[in-house]
C-alpha cells in the first residue's frame, strides 16, 4: 500500500458515498446513467470473484464487499424506488458494444487463460469504458448537477491515481502489470474533457455545463 493507492481507494469510496447522498438528498437519480451503474456492478462482481478464494487483508475484503454491495444497491434502487426519477430515453448508449468489446479484449489480452484471470481481465477492460454511457448522456443533456459532477470527479480521480500507483510500484517494487495500466490510461483519457470542465467551472463554483 502506498499513498497514491490509499487516496485512490478513498476517492472511490467517497464517489459512491456522494452518489448515494445525491440520490437520497434529491430523492432522484436524474442525471445518473443506469447503464453505467449496471456496468460498474458487472465490473465489481467479475473482478472480485476471488473474494472467497484469496485472502489479502480485512481492508481488501471489506472494500470488495462494499463495492459489490453498494453498486448492487444502486442498480436495485434505480430500478425500484427511484425508477420514475430518471429518463431511460436519455440513457441510450449501446452497452452491448462495451460488454462485447471488453470480452474480445480479455480473450486476446490476458496473462493466464483461467476462469478467475479471464473474468478479472474482463472487469479491467470493462471498467475502462464503463463511464461512457454516463459521459454520453451528459453530452446529450449538456449539463450535470454539481453533486453529480463531484461524484464523477472522485470516480475518475480514483483510476487516475491508480495509474500513478502503478508507476510508483514499478519504481519501488518492480511490480508491473501492463493490462490495468493500459486500461487505466484509456479511462483517464476518456475523462479528459470532463476533468477540464470540472476544473475550469465546477471548482470555481459554477454549474457543470458543456460549451
Amino acid at each position: 500500500m502506498n499513498v497514491f493507492r490509499l487516496v485512490a481507494d478513498l476517492m472511490h469510496l467517497a464517489s459512491i458515498l456522494i452518489l448515494l447522498l445525491k440520490i437520497r438528498k434529491t430523492r432522484s437519480a436524474a442525471g445518473i446513467s443506469f447503464k453505467s451503474q449496471l456496468l460498474y456492478l458487472i465490473v465489481f462482481v467479475t473482478r472480485y470473484l476471488d473474494l472467497f478464494t484469496h485472502w489479502v487483508s480485512l481492508y481488501n475484503t471489506a472494500m470488495k464487499v462494499f463495492f459489490i454491495a453498494s453498486s448492487g444497491y444502486i442498480v436495485y434502487q434505480m430500478q425500484r424506488r427511484y425508477r420514475a426519477t430518471w429518463d431511460p430515453a436519455l440513457d441510450t448508449f449501446r452497452i452491448e458494444f462495451l460488454l462485447g468489446g471488453a470480452a474480445v479484449m480479455s480473450l486476446i489480452f490476458h496473462t493466464k487463460f483461467t476462469f478467475l484471470e479471464l473474468f478479472w481481465t474482463y472487469s479491467i477492460w470493462l471498467e475502462a469504458v464503463a463511464i461512457l454511457p454516463q459521459l454520453f448522456q451528459m453530452s446529450r443533456t449538456g449539463e450535470a448537477e454539481t453533486i453529480t459532477a463531484h461524484y464523477l470527479f472522485a470516480l475518475g480521480a480514483y483510476r487516475g491515481l491508480y495509474v500513478v500507483n502503478w508507476i510508483y510500484r514499478y519504481a519501488t517494487e518492480g511490480y508491473w502489470e501492463w493490462i490495468p495500466f493500459l486500461a487505466g490510461m484509456v479511462q483517464t483519457v476518456l475523462y479528459a474533457d470532463f476533468f477540464y470542465v470540472y476544473f475550469s467551472r465546477v471548482m470555481r463554483g459554477k454549474k457543470f455545463e458543456l460549451p
Binding site: D50, S57, K64, W120
Partner: peptide, 10 residues
C-alpha cells in the same frame, strides 16, 4: 504476483 491468486489491489 502478477496473476490471480496474488492480486492485492482493488
Amino acid at each position: 504476483a502478477a496473476v490471480a491468486g496474488g492480486k492485492d489491489e482493488l
